[in-house]
C-alpha cells in the first residue's frame, strides 16, 4: 500500500512537471504579453517594455526562464504578479482558495446528496411518475446554461423574494455564516453534474437490478430495502464513484462563470483574469493548483475503488 502510494505520488510529480512545462511553453506561445494586456490601446514605448522585461527577467531565453521558475517553485516561491503589482502569487492564491473550495464542497454535497437518491428512486420506480419527475427536475435544471440559471436565481430569490443579498459573493468563504450565501451559486454550479449523476446512478442501478445475484437475493426472501442498499446500490455506485473525483475537481475548477455572476472572489475568476492579463506567474500558479487538485481527487477515487468494488485490486 505504501509502495503504491509512493509510486502514485511520484507519477503525480512527473505529471505536474509536464503540465508546468506545457503550460509554460503554451503561455509564452500565445500572442500578446503582460504589457500588451496592461497597456490597452496605447502603443508602449520600446523603452518601457524593454526595461520591464529586463526587470522581470523576461528577456532571457525561455528554457532559462523555465529552469528558474521550477527552481523557485521547489523552494515554494511562485513569483510576483504583473497585473496586481508587487503582490506575491502565493498570497493572492491563498487569499482566493477558501471561497472556491467552499463553493466546490457545497456544490459537491448538493450534486451527490440529491443526484444519487434521485437516480436510485428513478431506477426502483422505473417508468412511473416518480421516475419521470425526478429525471425531469434534475435534467431541466441542467438544460439551461449555468449563467442563465444563475441570473434567474438572482432575480427570483434575491430581488423578488429578498431572501439573499444581490451581492452574494460578499464575504463568501470568510466565515461559517457565509455558507448560506453559497446555496444559490452552489446549486447553479452543480445543476449539470447533478443531472449527470442521477442519470448515471439510474442507469447503473437498472443494470444491477437485472443481475442474477439480485434475483437470487430476492428469491432468498431478503427485504427489498436490504437488497437495494446492500447489494444493488453498492454495485451501482461503481461508475458513479469514478466520477466523484472529476466532478469535485470540475466543481472547484469550473466555477469561473458562477464566480463572475455572483461576484465570488475565487480562483476561477482569478484564473480567467490572469489569462486575459497574461499574468504569467498567476497563470502558472493557478494551473498547477488546479492540476494538483484534479490529481489528488483521482488518487482518492482510485483508493476508494477497491472499497466499493472488491473485485478490483490495487497495485
Amino acid at each position: 500500500m505504501t509502495r503504491y502510494l509512493l509510486g502514485r505520488l511520484l507519477q503525480s510529480a512527473i505529471t505536474l512537471f509536464f503540465i508546468a512545462l506545457i503550460t509554460f511553453t503554451l503561455m509564452h506561445e500565445v500572442p500578446g504579453g503582460p504589457f500588451d494586456a496592461l497597456a490597452g490601446e496605447r502603443v508602449l514605448s520600446v523603452e518601457f517594455v524593454r526595461a520591464q522585461e529586463a526587470y522581470y527577467g523576461l528577456s532571457d531565453p525561455l528554457p532559462q526562464q523555465f529552469a528558474r521558475y521550477m527552481g523557485n517553485l521547489l523552494r515554494g516561491d511562485l513569483g510576483l504578479s504583473f497585473a496586481q503589482k508587487g503582490q506575491k502569487i502565493s498570497d493572492l492564491i491563498l487569499d482566493k482558495m477558501n471561497a472556491s473550495l467552499l463553493l466546490g464542497a457545497m456544490s459537491f454535497t448538493i450534486v451527490f446528496g440529491f443526484g444519487v437518491p434521485v437516480g436510485v428512486v428513478s431506477a426502483i420506480r422505473r417508468n412511473t411518475i416518480w421516475d419521470y419527475l425526478g429525471l425531469a427536475l434534475s435534467t431541466s435544471l441542467a438544460a439551461v446554461p449555468a449563467f442563465v440559471t444563475a441570473f434567474i436565481f438572482l432575480i427570483v430569490f434575491a430581488v423578488w423574494l429578498g431572501w439573499f443579498d444581490v451581492r452574494l459573493g460578499k464575504d463568501f468563504g470568510d466565515s461559517l455564516g457565509s455558507v448560506r450565501n453559497g446555496l444559490l451559486p452552489a446549486l447553479a454550479l452543480g445543476a449539470p453534474s447533478m443531472a449527470l449523476v442521477s442519470r448515471l446512478t439510474r442507469g447503473a442501478m437498472l443494470e444491477v437490478l437485472d443481475q442474477d445475484y439480485i434475483r437470487t437475493a430476492r428469491a432468498k426472501g431478503l427485504s427489498r430495502g436490504g437488497i437495494y442498499v446492500r447489494h444493488a446500490l453498492r454495485n451501482a455506485l461503481i461508475p458513479v464513484v469514478t466520477l466523484t473525483g472529476p466532478i469535485f475537481a470540475g466543481l472547484v475548477t469550473g466555477s469561473i462563470i458562477i464566480e463572475e455572476i455572483f461576484g465570488i472572489p475565487g480562483i476561477g475568476s482569478a484564473f480567467v483574469t490572469s489569462v486575459f492579463q497574461r499574468d504569467y506567474g498567476m497563470i502558472m500558479g493557478t494551473t498547477l493548483l488546479y492540476a494538483t487538485i484534479i490529481m489528488l481527487m483521482n488518487l482518492v477515487v482510485d483508493l476508494l475503488y477497491p472499497l466499493v468494488d472488491p473485485r478490483v485490486r490495487i497495485a
Binding site: V30, P31, G32, G33, D36, A39, G40, F276, Q277, R278
Partner: peptide, 22 residues
C-alpha cells in the same frame, strides 16, 4: 480576438481597421 491578443495585434499594426479611442 481575445483581449490581450487583440491589443498585441493592434499595437503591432496587424490590422486593417480597428475601433477604439482615448
Amino acid at each position: 480576438l481575445e483581449r490581450a491578443t487583440y491589443f498585441s495585434e493592434r499595437a503591432a499594426g496587424k490590422y486593417q481597421v480597428v475601433t477604439g479611442g482615448w
